[in-house]
Amino acid sequence: MKAIVSVVGLDKPGIVATVSTTLANYNINIIDITQSYAHDFFTMLLIVDFEKSNITLKEISEKLKEAGDKIGVFVTIQHEDVFRAMHRI
């Protein structure tokens, strides 16, 4: 199963590290990562793979939220199917 993680917030050191460490802790693989930056505002989007992980989407969603709260960024995760259904014919 694949999912899309998005991270939004004010830029500061350690955002990529925090998010990727949380994902790595649960054996979730990052397969694509993009980031953009405008007016001190940071947006990062990751496509991640759950194949080797035992954690559920709900659980990782809570872990990511916790980690994000600590450094003041907003992290959400959604099943990839949502984006495929909406944006691909």
């Binding site: 397969i31 694509d32 989007l45 984006f83 909406m86």
Partner: peptide
């Protein structure tokens, strides 16, 4: 693998 633009995701 399907990839999505950041515009689509956002």
């Amino acid at each position: 693998m399907e990839s999505y633009t950041s515009t689509e995701i956002l």
